[in-house]
Design a protein around this nucleic acid. Sequence first.
DNA 1: AGGATAATTAGACAAAGTCTAGTATTTTGT
DNA 2: ACAAAATACTAGACTTTGTCTAATTATCCT
Lengths: 135, 135
Amino acid sequence: MEYTRENISTKLRNHGINPTHQRIEIAHALFSRHEHLSADQVMAIVNTRHAETSKATVYNTLRLFLEKGMIRELVVDPTKIFFDPNTTPHHHMYEVDTGRLSDIHGDIQITGLPPLPPGLVTEGVDLIVRVRHAS
Amino acid sequence: MEYTRENISTKLRNHGINPTHQRIEIAHALFSRHEHLSADQVMAIVNTRHAETSKATVYNTLRLFLEKGMIRELVVDPTKIFFDPNTTPHHHMYEVDTGRLSDIHGDIQITGLPPLPPGLVTEGVDLIVRVRHAS
DNA sequence: AGGATAATTAGACAAAGTCTAGTATTTTGT
DNA sequence: ACAAAATACTAGACTTTGTCTAATTATCCT
Ligand SMILES: [Mn+2]
Ligand SMILES: [Mn+2]
Ligand SMILES: [Zn+2]
Ligand SMILES: [Zn+2]
């Protein structure tokens, strides 16, 4: 699938989001790469050519995409949040010494989780394998 | 096991940590409760009676305990780190709407993890079940 | 005791993220 | 097409978590 401006506009509309210039730019930054990006990185990408999008808009828009379920938030680095354009269930590997974050592919099974206390619903199950480069 | 000052001093020495007044207070805050605490909460607990321990010392000491493997760090809340006095492998449940963090007990098995790329070693596997209170 | 070393401190600083109040753009209704 | 209303964007102040520095204090050793 190609991430043209037109396709991205459609995707935004499908999620109930009004496709504005800034929102298209931010969505494009996230979906055309297949990486996990921080708000700061999104900000930098979107403003490479010439400054067009403010910090407030980057943060607001990422929140909006999250609420609408278009992206996913990863809390894995103590200093910043990463945003993941892939919302299908998958797990992550985090290199603690370099800060690199990548997907784990394969058929991972988690068994033995006790039932939830009543009144609680699962929002997601995050599995993070923390690794580091050998001595 | 009782967490007297004496027992805590011994525990610190066993981890190669010089037991000072502040370090004993901080360790006591963590180990006498069986909760996951943020730096801020540790700070508040340690300084309830009268201010005795500075912010710098709280942060430095928590880092030190971490390095020495006496406590564990949990990156789960986007705004702050939690410290866990329980270093044995176990997993967590995080209530996203209240910020409450608790242990998951039971025999959880994770299968199907692909082998690590060469040169990388596992530091830990964190499983976080994110839950929220039903609508 | 006295010198060396280790630990603590106040407060400046940094970075991520939020908020506000004003401006610009887009949409809606006629 | 036009005006009014609603939505979106912005600069920059502000907040919070955490780090750093340089000076002070406590501890250790002979
Ligand atoms: Mn940055
Ligand atoms: Mn706090
Ligand atoms: Zn991912
Ligand atoms: Zn725990």
